[in-house]
Design a protein around this nucleic acid. Structure first.
Lengths: 241, 241
DNA sequence: TAAACTATATCCTATACATGACTTGCGGTT
DNA sequence: AACCGCAAGTCATGTATAGGATATAGTTTA
């Protein structure tokens, strides 16, 4: 009758799944690594192959690992198109899409604002790295990004790679061991600021789309705060329900 | 070596899944119906329970059916909160959400515009039903909806229920046997028109969010075209990646 | 009457095993 | 050197079965 808030038991395959995820999150199996085979893992945990399989299939559903018949099971990286487009939802109105090209605007180390600290779960005044850039789609300036990162997780990023790559998430993963596994986005329509208007080639006050994203790691801890201001003349934000 | 564009074989469980989906789409098992048990279905199709189970689990993942231990497997309806909120992505900025209340603006039978015909996959000039309404969230007018439906699928809807219910998808399902199974949405920021501004209590030209949705049935055929114009002062469009 | 128990039906978990499909590398052949 | 075929390793599919968890209805019991 009463809904049991604390489930009375926890399936074995979920426990296995947790153990596997832990080994991935800890870096023991870093992204790009092929993990042991079904049979080997099942034997090492002393469970049946079916049980281990069910655990792995949940990780596939969560985009943590990718399995391929005949090859093996690999921890997902951010360099495949599939994962890359998962975090890029802008489509041209005719249904096509292109990859954005970035132009840097600024990069510096400073203290977090109150909003930034709240979104990233940091102490007020904690050190953060702030990056801003413009991104062009097919040569047309389309969005301005304001990115904030916890400095402690990305030591040296305020200076180090002289030129930032186009896709930051791959850099986070390769250079700092920070993998973006999930993200929440909240979209609102706002009037373009004078600055954004200049970068985006629109008039101040023109309507633009503002996307506030918080990107998280495997455990759900915030890694990145990103505010994208987008002109939707040629592109729109696409979503499947 | 070459990627086989036409897969060389089709797994049994997918064939079973198609057969099950067909029986649901055809109306043989209408929403709310409990379908036969695993064992019965497996026997009737002459496959193992495990195979049938895999087919059903895919339908669960696609929100077509809901399985509950001890009870059975039921075809999903649009009257549960879970399914309802799947198609309603507006959240208050503090993270809470409320259910909208609707006020009718108009309803009529007319010929489709070119855009409407294209979006719904109809012949130019086909008969459609157009519905417009304002929706309040916590007493504040927040969005204006312009809804277009193929008249042939919804006979009499231009007049019949004197008062439209708050959640239309449940009505589509109950009265017309039309179940919305998927939807695509495209979001852009636009300037509020004079009309929308009046309904939403903003100034003409103020930035508002425009959501263009095409809702589809089990097979992917368009059922409904809906353009929502939203003021994002208090609410935002939320998405999980 | 109300609570506890029982029986049954359902889906869920877990195991075991056989076979098929796919990838890769190794040898041998040309 | 290039090609071909084979073998081994991997995940995918399909079957079979036993027992557990959950829901419901009916029966017994206090």
């Amino acid at each position: 009758m009463d809904a049991p808030k604390f489930p009375t038991f926890r399936p074995l395959y979920q426990q296995i799944k947790d153990l596997l995820l832990e080994r991935i999150a800890s870096g023991e199996w870093s992204p790009g690594t092929y993990i042991p085979s079904e049979a080997a893992l099942a034997a090492s945990y002393d469970v049946s192959v079916g049980t281990l399989r069910k655990a792995l299939n949940e990780l596939v559903a969560e985009n943590v690992v990718i399995r391929q018949q005949g090859k093996g099971t690999v921890v997902a990286t951010h360099d495949t198109d599939r994962v890359l487009f998962r975090f890029f939802n802008l489509w041209r109105h005719d249904g096509e899409r292109g990859l954005p090209v970035s132009r840097p605007l600024g990069r510096k180390l400073r203290k977090a604002t109150a909003d930034e600290a709240r979104d990233l779960g940091l102490e007020p005044g904690a050190k953060v790295i702030h990056i801003s850039r413009v991104r062009d789609l097919e040569g047309v300036p389309t969005l301005v990004e304001q990115i904030t990162l916890e400095a402690a997780r990305f030591p040296g990023l305020e200076k180090d790679p002289e030129v930032l790559p186009n896709t930051l998430y791959h850099l986070y993963q390769q250079r700092f061991g920070q993998t973006v596994a999930h993200a929440d986005e909240s979209l609102v329509a706002v009037a373009a600021s004078a600055q954004d208007a200049e970068h985006l080639d629109v008039q101040p006050g023109d309507p633009v789309l503002q996307i506030r994203r918080i990107a998280r790691d495997y455990q759900g801890t915030p890694i990145e705060r990103r505010i994208s201001t987008v002109t939707t003349r040629h592109y729109g934000y696409f979503n499947q329900l």
